[in-house]
Amino acid sequence: MKRQLPLFLVLIFGLFGIVQYFIPHEKSEWMYEFLLDWIYIIGIFALALGIWSLMRVSWDKIKHKRQNWQYSIVTLTGLFAMIFFGFNYFRDFFNSAGLQNYMFRAFFDHIMIPIQATMFSLLAFFIASAAYRAFRARSLLATLLLISALIIMLRFNPYLGFIGDYMERTALWLLNVPNLAAKRAIIIGVGLGMVATSLKVILGIERAYLGKD
């Protein structure tokens, strides 16, 4: 019961996921739309588990005064403040106007958005350090990668004279031709890997995710 029923559910719903693609009938579409909705709704319950996990880990850190425990207070403060405003406790008890609440929006616009954008912009530095790492390439494969990266990066360089022209053409060719071949090989391989993995899950061959006993 503890393991058989879940495996049976995986089989049934997995098979339905495959079969519905071949059935254009309204009933199949209707079921498909229901399933997608269901997954979203269950996701909300899972999110509650997630928030619970975050709170527990943070609280444990504070309670046991683990390293950097002070910052967990910041996490919890941010979390509770946002929940407080998001549910609009401040003005009207518990309504969806929370999403329009000034503080909720301000936290989103002035904490989440700037940090998100800054983290994203860190990529400029990280790509530079990654390029440096690639420059120290010792193996043939890494050298190939480096050369083709260099050709692409220098493709619009006006100081290279007529070489630049060739570089631009080579860059364009690299992006259009070998790139297409490699992507195709990867996509076909990944497709097979995905089908195999899904089938293993649906058939219950791969069942580690369902736990033991």
Binding site: I42, A46, L49, Y209
Partner: peptide, 11 residues
Amino acid sequence: DPIVMTVAQET
């Protein structure tokens, strides 16, 4: 992802 977390815990 919270569902991923749940499955990963189980795993």
